[in-house]
Measured scan of single mutants.
Amino acid sequence: HTVDVQGVTYHFDNPEEARKFAEEMAKRLGLQVHVKDGRYKVE
């Protein structure tokens, strides 16, 4: 499970961890979480 944050890619084994990380980063950076091709993108 992959999370892209402003061009940096993070990998997680656990989909729940990936989702939480994406939401946390989006909140911290004031950005949105998009799901695209099964990847989380924070932009």
Rank of each mutant, 00 (worst) to 15 (best):
E16H: 11
V5Y: 04
L29N: 03
Q32M: 10
F12T: 01
K36E: 15
D13L: 10
Y10H: 06
H34R: 10
F12D: 00
T2E: 14
E23C: 15
F21Y: 07
Y10V: 05
V35Q: 07
P15V: 09
V3I: 02
E17P: 05
E43L: 07
R28M: 12
H11W: 12
A22V: 02
G30F: 05
V42H: 02
A18S: 05
G7A: 05
K36C: 13
N14Q: 10
D37T: 03
V42A: 02
D13E: 13
K20C: 15
V8Q: 12
L31N: 02
M25H: 06
V3C: 06
F21P: 00
Y40E: 03
K27G: 07
E23Y: 15
R28W: 07
E24A: 13
V35T: 06
K20D: 10
A18F: 01
T2N: 09
Y10I: 04
V42T: 02
V35P: 02
H11D: 08
D13R: 09
P15L: 08
R19G: 06
R28Q: 10
H11K: 11
Q6S: 08
V8K: 13
H11E: 10
K41Y: 15
A26Q: 01
F12Q: 00
N14R: 10
H11V: 13
E17K: 10
P15Q: 14
D4H: 06
V33A: 04
M25T: 11
D4K: 05
F12Y: 05
V3N: 00
Y10R: 04
G7N: 07
N14I: 08
K41A: 10
H1M: 12
Y40I: 10
F21V: 03
E43T: 09
Y40G: 03
K27Q: 11
A26V: 01
L29F: 07
D13N: 12
L31D: 01
N14A: 11
A18G: 04
T9Q: 09
V42W: 02
M25A: 10
V3G: 00
A22S: 04
Q32R: 12
E43F: 09
V33W: 09
E43D: 13
V33L: 06
K41G: 05
E23V: 13
R39K: 15
Q6T: 09
R28K: 12
E43Q: 07
A18C: 08
A22T: 01
G38C: 14
D37I: 02
H1F: 12
M25P: 00
L29K: 03
R28Y: 08
R39W: 09
E24V: 10
H1N: 12
L31T: 04
Q32L: 08
A26Y: 01
K41V: 15
F21K: 02
G30R: 06
Q6Y: 09
K41T: 15
A22N: 00
Q6F: 12
R28T: 08
D37L: 04
V35H: 08
G38Y: 03
R39D: 15
A26R: 02
V35I: 12
K41F: 15
E16T: 11
Y40V: 06
Y40M: 07
R39C: 15
K36N: 08
F12N: 00
E23A: 08
F21T: 02
L29I: 03
E43Y: 11
E16D: 13
A22K: 00
R19Q: 08
V5K: 01
M25F: 07
F12W: 04
V5W: 03
E17T: 12
T9F: 12
V3M: 01
E24P: 00
D4N: 06
E43H: 07
E17V: 09
D4V: 07
E16V: 11
E16S: 11
K36Y: 07
G38M: 04
Y40S: 03
Y10Q: 02
E43W: 08
A18M: 03
L29D: 02
R39L: 12
H11L: 12
G30K: 06
E17H: 10
A26N: 01
V3L: 01
K41W: 15
K36H: 14
F21L: 03
D13Y: 09
E17D: 12
V33E: 01
Q32V: 15
V33G: 01
L29Q: 03
H1A: 13
D13G: 10
K27E: 10
R28H: 07
Y40N: 03
T2F: 15
F12M: 03
G38W: 03
R19Y: 08
Q6D: 07
A26G: 06
A22P: 00
E16Y: 11
V33D: 00
Y40A: 04
A18D: 00
V8N: 09
R39A: 15
K36L: 11
R39H: 15
Q32H: 14
V35K: 06
V42G: 02
E24L: 14
E23L: 13
P15C: 12
Q32F: 11
R28F: 08
K41H: 15
Q32K: 14
R19K: 10
V8A: 10
G30W: 03
V42S: 02
V3T: 03
G7E: 05
R19M: 08
Y10F: 11
G7F: 05
F12I: 02
L29R: 03
E17I: 09
V3D: 00
A26S: 04
T9N: 07
V42C: 05
F12V: 02
R28A: 11
V5C: 13
V8D: 07
T9G: 05
K41I: 15
Q32P: 06
T2Q: 13
Y40R: 03
H34Q: 10
P15F: 06
R39Q: 15
A22I: 01
V35C: 14
H34D: 05
A18Q: 04
H11S: 12
K36G: 06
P15W: 06
L31Q: 04
F12P: 00
V42N: 02
L31K: 03
D37V: 03
D37A: 05
V33Y: 05
V3R: 00
M25L: 06
L31I: 04
K36A: 10
R19I: 06
E43S: 09
Q6V: 14
Q6M: 14
K36M: 12
V3E: 00
P15I: 08
E23W: 15
P15R: 13
D37G: 06
Q32D: 06
Q6A: 08
